[in-house]
Structures are given as C-alpha cells and as structure tokens.
Design a protein around this nucleic acid. Structure first.
Lengths: 192, 192
DNA sequence: CCCAGATGAGACATTGACGTCTCATTCTGG
DNA sequence: CCAGAATGAGACGTCAATGTCTCATCTGGG
C-alpha cells in the first residue's frame, strides 16, 4: 500500500523543511521556492514532493503557527492566577514562534479571502477571553476592548520580532518589552 | 523647453494617482499596476508616464508617507507641554496616514537593502526624542527604551489601521485605542 | 545482492506581471 | 481654429517564478 502514501522518513523531514522555511521566510518573506529548498538542504523537486506548491507551503506554515500558538497558550495556563501574570507567561511561551507569526501576519493572502482559517478564530477567542477575565476581575481597564488588546498583542509581537531581527531590541528582552508595554504602558507608575 | 519636462497638469494628477494607489494598496498590497491604474481612473500607459515602474511608485509612496509623518509630527508640536499629551496629539495627527503607513510597514523591499531612506531615520530620531524627553521629565518609565517605544508605536498604528479596515475597531476610536494602550497599558490604574 | 522508494539535477512549458512601443483620439492654450 | 501635449487602448516582447517531467543515482531493508 506504500504507493498511496509516504514513508515515515518523509514525516520527520517534512517538519524540518517546514521549520527551515519558517526561518528563511521570517527574514525574506518573498524568498523563492528555490531558496526555500536550498535553505532546507533539499532540491526543489523534493520540496514539491512535500508541498504541492507555494500556496500549500504557506498554508502548512499557517497550520504550524496556529499549533505553536495553541501550544504556547496551553502552557501559559491562561485561566490560572492573575490575568497579568498569565499574559506574561503567554508572551514568554510565544517568543519562539514570534518570527513565524510576524511572517504570517504580513501574508495578506491568508486574510483577504473569506477562507479565514478557523484556527485563528479559536486563538482570538481564547486570548480575548483572557483579557476579558482580567477586566471582570478588575485587573484590566475596561475602556480598551478585548478585541483591540488581542490585536495589539499580535502587532507588538510582530514589531518586536522584526526589531529583534534587526538588532534594535535584544532577544532576551523580548518578553519584558512586550508584556510590560502591553500591561503597564509607557507612563511611569505612581509611587505607592 | 516643454519637451524636457511635464506640464503643470501632470503635477496635480500625480498627487491624485499617488493617493489612489495608497488607498488601494492599503487594502491589497499585491495589487497589479493594472489595478492601480484603474483605481486612479487612468490607463496603464499614463501610469507609466508618471512613475517609471512599480518600484518607482512604491518609492514615491514611501516619500509621501515620510512627508505625511513629518507633517503630523510638526503639527503635534512634540516639544511642547507634557510628553504624554504630545504623544496623543501625534497619534491623532497621524491617523489619516495610518493606512499608507501600514502598507509601507509590510513592504519588506524598503527595509532589507542597505539603501534605507534617511527620512525614516529622521522620523525615528524625532519620535525617539519625544519619548526620551518624557523619560527625562519623569513622565515615562525608563525600563522601556525610546527605540522600542518608537517601534511599538509603529506596530500599534499598523495593527489598528488593519483592524479598522476589517471593522474590528471603529475608525473614531483609533487615536484613543493607540494612545491609551501605548501610554497607560492594559492594567487598571490605582485610584488616587 | 537486489529492488523499491526517495532524492538530486536539470530540462521544459506555462503563467502572470512588467515595461515598451505605436497610433488614433482628446484636450488645451494661444 | 490649430498645433502641440496628453491620454487611452492595446499589441508586443521580456523575464522571473512556478509547476511538471524525466532520468541517473543513492540508500536501506529483505
């Protein structure tokens, strides 16, 4: 029956190819299929055996990004403890996927059609619920909607990932910069 | 001598074409030269008489974006009064250019080469100076660098412009959402 | 050893966007 | 009204990326 599917060898390779592509496209989102193949250390023919075309590759990266986000969200335990601490945990857990996310964020092809992947909606709902929980608990202000806070979180992640690649922000500061700005803002807190 | 240049008529048209292109590319950043021409109500031939090619068009849009930002910065009087108020004025003044900026923000072609337009460096310096002024005055916290605050401002503008296009954020809330999040953060302030 | 599956290298056609060109038509200022 | 400038429509040619195909080679399990 093996003529119908792929051997187990291709499964592990596929993941490696996917991650190489993510790393490359994070830097140069317009990279050629040729460059993607080279970056993964395989030939263009083999790349096409894994992914039917560029579109399929981008869709697979989208799935990977969604899966990484959901994993990060799971590990962050968003229902547990103060909402602010949960946000800090989430940002910390999501950092490894930030590059991939910033690539996907700029891939308009994923957003303009009506075929919006429901994975993003699930994520939006879960992150929005976290912010809402913080509002209900009196931790977060209520004049910024959960939807906007979620959107702003994505935007800050993409910004910081890009600034990190350019060396304008140190990689080790990533979680602090995002979480502190998102939670506390630029204004200095009153002394207690 | 008119065979060497263009009549004054093309000058006003050029601006109209530029703004039509900005409006279209804000929505579909991969729009064709054909679509750009149609959106401006002119033929592709005429579009090429104004801009040598797609690259020239993008560069012209970059110049327009820089000019709009510098104008907004001038009108916001960043040296005047409390830094937080200056930031609020800046965000309000920059809103009309937000769509164009979010397009430019995603145009990697502008950033990856070493031919970075010095206009952006001027803007970075001016906005960074505003945040630094706030830090020196004790208004802003010092654990978030001016460079990062500037980057975050760009990111929030792009996020909010995009969310506005999709109807997830109301256009009239744009200045408040950005300025309040950037300045105050999501955490509820202590009652004084 | 042998063979099926996987790979690499490369040729090939296709496609979509781009840039250039021509020519008839329209507009405009004198 | 008229000459020159500007425009629209469209026909090309070009080019880079893509997707498909073939064939020689490699590899690992039986």
């Amino acid at each position: 029956m093996s003529h119908l599917g792929y051997s187990c060898l291709m499964a592990i390779d596929r993941d490696h190819v996917l991650r190489s592509a993510a790393a490359l496209l994070t830097r140069r989102s317009t990279a050629t299929m040729d460059e993607v193949a080279k970056a993964a250390g395989i030939s263009r023919a083999t790349l096409h055996r894994h992914f039917a075309g560029r579109d399929a590759l981008v869709r697979a990266l989208e799935q990977l990004g969604i899966a990484e986000c959901e994993g990060a969200l799971d590990r962050a335990r968003p229902e547990e403890g103060p909402a602010a601490e949960a946000v800090r945990r989430l940002v910390r857990e999501i950092q490894p996927a930030a590059g991939l996310l910033s690539f996907l964020y700029g891939e308009n092809q994923l957003w303009e059609g009506d075929g919006l992947n429901e994975g993003w909606q699930r994520l939006d709902a879960r992150i929005g619920a976290l912010f809402q929980r913080g509002q209900r608990a009196g931790e977060f202000r209520i004049d910024l909607s959960p939807v906007w806070l979620t959107e702003a979180l994505y935007g800050l992640i993409a910004s910081c990932a890009w600034a990190t690649l350019d060396g304008r922000v140190a990689s080790r500061d990533f979680p602090t910069m995002i979480a502190e700005l998102l939670l506390g803002g630029a204004l200095r807190r009153e002394e207690p």
